[in-house]
């Protein structure tokens, strides 16, 4: 198994698979974070009509089966679908990494937004008022609350990453698991298992675990300060 891992690591096909996994999930996570943290903060801190409905939708999204999101994205992007028919350069084609990024962004977004919302709601409303009293604008208040909720916000990002790096259904549907183009770790594991290459599948699984572990350790280092003091 170790030998296999070694030969696998020297294998350029494998390097490509790992790199694509990281790229697709990484870019999707960036999108989900850039959109999810502001929306999560607004839902957690704001008071506006329809907030409760949005919160309920967000919670639903957090538990939504990724494969169903994959199906929606598939239908959206297919040639006869509403987006696929546009032929716009902004819309990715099916069976490309772009389509995988889109699906994974949608999967990660409610996780990031939902956990961010919970984190900022956990910050004492009295603190928010005192921050305002010290002269903070709305924007400064939100940033301060996010920093106070830092531990929870980082958990939100970790949850988003965990939800997509290990996800197989949606990337399989919209990516198609095409060798050399859209094959990622999870879809490669499925394929190798099906072909009876259990050792290879296990080695890929170990790599996936290692990546998740390393990424989480890095994120925890960001949280670090909050724990040491």
């Amino acid at each position: 198994m170790l030998d296999l891992l070694k030969s696998a690591l020297g294998n350029s096909d494998l390097a490509e698979i790992v790199w694509l996994s990281l790229r697709v999930s990484g870019i999707a996570l960036v999108f989900a974070t850039v959109v999810g943290i502001p929306i999560g903060s607004a839902l957690g801190l704001g008071r506006f009509v329809g907030r409760r409905l949005l919160v309920a939708l967000m919670y639903t999204g957090m538990g939504f089966p990724p494969v169903v999101i994959g199906l929606f994205v598939y239908l959206l992007l297919s040639r006869s679908g509403p987006l696929g028919g546009l032929n716009s350069p902004l819309v990715p084609n099916l069976f490309t990494p772009g389509a995988m990024v889109l699906a994974q962004s949608i999967i990660a977004f409610p996780l990031v937004a939902g956990f961010t919302m919970a984190a900022v709601m956990g910050v004492d409303a009295g603190l928010r008022q005192q921050v305002r009293s010290l002269g903070a604008t709305d924007w400064q208040t939100t940033v301060t609350v996010l920093l106070e909720a830092k531990v929870g916000v980082i958990v939100a990002v970790i949850a988003g990453f965990g939800g997509i790096i290990s996800e197989v259904g949606a990337v399989m549907l919209v990516g198609g698991n095409i060798e050399g183009r859209t094959r990622v770790l999870t879809t490669a594991i499925v394929l190798e298992t099906r072909q009876g290459n259990f050792e290879m599948a296990l080695a890929l699984g170990a790599i996936l675990l290692a990546i998740t572990f390393v990424v989480n350790v890095l994120m925890l280092r960001l949280q670090g300060k909050a724990f040491t003091e």
Binding site: G126, Q130, V131, S133, T144, L147, A226
Partner: peptide, 19 residues
Amino acid sequence: SLAARRSVTTVSQRPILLD
């Protein structure tokens, strides 16, 4: 205005310091 708001500040009954 923000300037007016920033010229007033409160020490609250139950102060909460930042972490």
